[in-house]
């Protein structure tokens, strides 16, 4: 049996080379006359959903694949699971070509599409788990043992016997991700798993995924347009926009290179003097006892800002924070956008 394949002594689970996917989309102007014209002489335009994407993912890696709506994330994931055939290019997932070896590959990967539930809607989740046991050719005892483990890991034991239609979205998603891990896949492909979830539900899902990565070494390729998923889970990030990779690096490097501006909020014991000003620092807001500032650490030294702030008066409280990662990513999208 083929399994993880190896490049340069690094165990690789996904290798994608110059992958393209184009769709033919029918176009029609508004109105009945245009509909009649389109009936006899339809017009089509070509949409390039994925344009020459190449990347590699290591075994057990937590890789974020993020981008705005329509960036090509889901199309890429669908090609990597064998759902779609690419227009051009190559991909190797766990030693298989997904669109040629779809069935064999499916035994080794788990997939979750946030908008495409796989649990049977009218049945309790346990029934879908048992059905999946048969689909993945596990015996009943093995399935039951695995369900017990996943029920504990995802904290879903009390939910398993409730019809899925009666679960909250967060509860259902926990069951969805757990179901995708029933057959001990080596790789989990998650397409927008946190879409529509509240903060607590997102945290539950993220904790469980992280645990499965640590305990079972499951590699995770996660698409999301939620930067929180990326910060909480991923070690490395690929940012796509308009079907192309616009950024690829470690999340820590992304933060170091792009999170250079700092937000500072200061509170003084006495009133802030009139005409408050520090060279190289944007003063965002001046209140009676406090100020809010922003500065770029590449242009203005942190030491210098801090000493200026303490010279103004007695500090009661100070908060230094990074701008939201979402802002950084949005900036990268903009920089990469075609003119």
């Amino acid at each position: 049996m083929k399994s993880i394949f190896q490049f340069d002594n690094i165990m690789t689970s996904i290798e994608v080379t110059r992958l393209f996917k184009t769709f033919q989309t029918k176009r029609k102007s508004a109105g009945l006359a245009a509909s009649a014209r389109a009936l006899f002489k339809p017009k089509y335009s070509t949409v390039e959903a994925v344009r020459g994407i190449s990347f590699r993912m290591e075994e057990g890696e937590l890789l974020g694949f993020i981008g705005p709506n329509g960036a090509g994330k889901s199309t890429t994931i669908k090609m990597l699971t064998g759902i779609l055939h690419p227009s051009a290019g190559e991909a190797n997932v766990l030693g298989f070509t997904p669109w040629k070896d779809r069935q064999k590959l499916a035994f080794h990967i788990g997939t979750v599409f946030g908008q495409r539930p796989q649990l049977w809607y009218h049945l309790p989740a346990i029934d879908t788990f048992m059905l999946f046991g048969k689909i993945y050719e596990l015996d009943e005892a093995e399935t039951q043992k695995r369900v017990d483990f996943l029920a504990e890991a995802f904290e879903i034991r009390d939910l398993l016997e409730t019809p899925v239609r009666k679960l909250s979205l967060g509860q259902r998603m926990r069951c969805e991700v757990a179901a995708s891990l029933l057959h001990r896949p080596k790789l989990l492909l998650l397409d927008e798993p946190s879409i529509g979830l509240d903060v607590v539900a997102k945290q539950h899902i993220r904790d469980a995924i992280r645990r499965m990565n640590q305990e079972e070494g499951v590699g995770v390729l996660l698409t999301s347009h939620d930067a929180g998923d990326l910060e909480a889970l991923c070690k490395r990030v690929i940012i796509v926009n308009h079907g192309q990779i616009v950024y690829e690096d470690k999340v820590s490097n992304l933060k170091r290179k792009h999170l250079t501006s700092k937000l500072v909020e200061v509170r003084y014991a006495e009133e802030v003097p009139a005409g408050f000003h520090i060279d190289g620092v944007d003063v965002l807001k001046v209140g009676r006892y406090g100020v809010k500032l922003r500065f770029d650490t590449n242009k203005t030294a942190v030491d210098s800002v801090m000493s200026h702030l303490s010279e103004v008066g007695d500090l009661v409280d100070i908060t230094i924070s990074d701008p939201p990662l979402e802002d950084v990513i949005a900036k990268i999208y903009k920089e990469a956008a075609p003119a």
């Binding site: 699971t81 064998g82 759902i83 069935q103 035994f107 997939t111 796989q118």
Partner: peptide
């Protein structure tokens, strides 16, 4: 809506 079936290892 074939995605669900295509992601599972059966005919």
């Amino acid at each position: 809506r074939l995605d669900y079936y295509l992601s599972l290892p059966k005919p």
